[in-house]
């Protein structure tokens, strides 16, 4: 079974026409995407963490650790964890930037933010974290605010990715960096096939069984396939103004970490 068996649209993963975009494999009006994505994350919020562990066999924790290690974060830094959801990255950043630093957990979805806030409070992480409901396309921060912006498994859900990248660029300080952790294209055909089989057969069933929500997990699998591959995303970073852009494949390219600087 391959992705093509699932009626994957053949056009570019970018926005296909002026007013339409993709919601998984469906082509929909841009205006509808935000609320449809919101529907998905309202519905998965409570089970999100447990599903993450199950679906990725816990490997998402290593991908996130890799992101932290690559961020070069230091005490006193201001960090934006964009599309931060339940706050895994925020938790680590908050501890590493210390009292003199600050972390903003921003997400478009109030349910995800609430689950994140409760989780971080339970961990005793309160001092240096702010929670903000915001759309990545229209970040409500001054220019040149952050030393580091991360967006982990979030960019593929954003309606206008180029606009979001420009918005991130604007709020980064000169010398600051963006890290995009996102599903990407496995480098090897065999791995690609195995991954397709897993995503379209096993993953939605797991979603159905554990989170009672197969449709949302079908969307997640489809949105992963529609997301730009490594080189395309790198070019998108370049186009948004980022410099010294690069990416590193993790787990055979199932996931890639892109990095770009603002000078």
């Amino acid at each position: 079974m391959s992705a093509s068996d699932h009626n994957k649209p053949t056009n570019s993963p970018q926005e296909s026409a002026e007013n339409t975009t993709h919601f998984g494999y469906q082509t929909i009006d841009k205006e509808d995407k935000v609320s449809m994505v919101a529907g998905v994350f309202h519905s998965v919020a409570k089970q999100y963490d447990i599903m993450n562990d199950l679906m990725s066999f816990g490997i998402h924790r290593l991908w996130k650790r890799f992101t932290i290690d690559a961020s070069g974060v230091r005490p006193g830094n201001k960090v934006l964890d964009l599309a931060g959801g339940t706050g895994d990255l925020t938790a680590k950043f908050s501890q590493l930037v210390g009292k003199s630093g600050q972390v903003v957990l921003a997400d478009i979805n109030s349910s995800m933010l609430n689950v994140g806030r409760d989780k971080l409070r339970d961990k005793g992480l309160v001092q240096n974290i702010d929670y903000i409901q915001a759309n990545a396309q229209y970040l409500p921060f001054e220019d040149n605010t952050f030393d580091i912006v991360t967006i982990a498994f979030g960019l593929r859900n954003v309606t206008d990715k180029d606009m979001a990248l420009r918005s991130i660029y604007r709020v980064l300080k000169p010398g600051g960096r963006l890290l995009v952790l996102e599903f990407s294209k496995p480098e090897h055909e065999l791995l690609n096939k195995a991954y397709d089989f897993y995503s379209f057969n096993i993953l939605p069933k797991m979603g159905e069984l554990v989170a009672k929500d197969g449709d949302s997990y079908k969307y997640l699998a489809e949105s992963i396939r529609m997301h730009p591959d490594q080189e395309t995303l790198k070019t998108m970073l370049d186009n948004a103004g980022f410099e010294q852009t690069s990416f590193k494949n993790l787990t055979g390219g199932v996931v890639a970490l892109h990095k770009g600087y603002k000078f």
Binding site: W63, R65, F66, E187, L191, L250, T251, G252
Partner: peptide
């Protein structure tokens, strides 16, 4: 390739 990306340090 996979071994390389095993993320041993993490």
């Amino acid at each position: 390739q996979i071994a390389k990306q095993f993320m041993f340090s993490q």
